[in-house]
């Protein structure tokens, strides 16, 4: 499938390179999964803690392949009318009212009732044609001739029913609209589903996807990420900063800092023209990486030792 895009998927390393060029550092296991997703033509279910770049994975895929990204944000109560398609009821109603006069002309006053009905039947599909169809993300993704990257974000927030409804799309990449028929795409979209594991997804859904778990990155990968995202940062500071963050993740905090927060912190420190971490600087900027008062308190207690370890890890 997707043979036109094959040159971008011949090697696993090529994918990581392409992603790196787009500003996303992915390790080999992520690249392997993407490689397989392409060759098997399967959706990818991405799980992991908040802020490890699950959503960005899909966004970068769109940049890499130069395809449009179509995003569907899931929430409780999401149903097919918001995800797949909806009839433009208002427009339909308005048109019926506006066309009232036309009806008189179509129907000859001389005719009897059954003949008029017969005539009307010829027009009945007018109101249920594509003109009155409002495509929502899922249908939109299938309609793209060149293919697309479809991101179904936080699928665990949606109801079980919606999950069941996704099955048809994920396994056959087609949808049926009773009034129009089955819609099949010219090119299969790349599908990413993300989940924060707030609840267990159904077996059926998991079965149709490749599974990718993205944990917090290890120190060297995280440094790589910081370097790519915040190019101006000095090598020393970058090592110190990542060491500090990695230490916090080992601690028992409510919300461990994510990669996004590491990057924010790096930017802040760059703005402050910091060369080294020191306890005061860290204390003043701690709220950038920690979002709970309690977490800040826990970390503040150990701030001296942690800063010390970080500074020492960068050498002299």
């Amino acid at each position: 499938m997707n043979s036109a895009l094959d040159p971008k998927f011949t090697e696993i390393d090529q994918i990581s390179e392409g992603y790196r060029a787009a500003g996303y550092i992915c390790n080999r296991s992520i690249a392997t999964t993407l490689y397989l997703a392409h060759h098997l033509g399967k959706p990818v279910l991405v799980e992991g803690p908040a802020g490890v770049g699950k959503t960005d994975l899909a966004k970068t895929m769109a940049t890499y392949l130069e395809l449009p990204l179509i995003r569907l944000q899931c929430y409780e109560g999401l149903d097919e009318s918001k995800a797949l398609y909806e009839w433009k009821y208002g427009k339909q109603l308005l048109y019926t009212q506006l066309l009232k006069d036309k009806l008189d002309r179509i129907i000859d006053p001389e005719e009897n009732l059954s003949e008029s009905m017969e005539k009307l039947h010829r027009y009945e599909d007018v109101f249920f044609s594509k003109k009155f169809l409002e495509p929502r993300p899922l249908l939109k993704a299938l309609e793209q001739a060149e293919g697309a990257v479809l991101l179904i974000d936080e699928v665990d927030k949606a109801d079980d029913e919606f999950e069941a409804f996704l099955l048809e799309i994920l396994s056959d990449f087609q949808v049926s609209i009773p009034e129009i028929g089955t819609i099949q795409p010219g090119t299969r979209p790349y599908v990413f589903l993300t989940s924060n594991s707030t609840r267990e997804l159904s077996e059926a859904l998991k079965r149709r996807c490749l599974h990718l778990f993205i944990p917090f990155p290890d120190a060297s990968l995280e440094r790589d990420i910081v370097r790519t995202r915040v190019p101006g940062i000095s090598g020393r500071l970058e090592i110190q900063l990542v060491t500090f963050i990695q230490q916090i993740r080992q601690m028992d905090v409510k919300k461990p800092p994510s990669i996004g927060e590491t990057i924010d912190w790096a930017r802040v420190l760059l703005l402050l023209h910091a060369n080294d971490l020191n306890p005061d600087l860290v204390r003043e900027t701690l709220h950038v990486i920690l979002k709970f008062e309690e977490d800040i308190r826990i970390v503040s207690q150990n701030i001296f030792t942690m800063t010390d370890i970080s500074v020492r890890s960068a050498g002299n």
Binding site: I12, R28, S29, T32, T33, L36, L40, V44, L45, E47, S197, E200, E203, K206, R207, C209, L210, H211, L212, F213
Partner: peptide
Amino acid sequence: RKVLKDSLGSSLAKSARER
């Protein structure tokens, strides 16, 4: 070996625990 592990992993294990 690493690629094999990741490939089989993503198609067979479907949650962090299973992984």
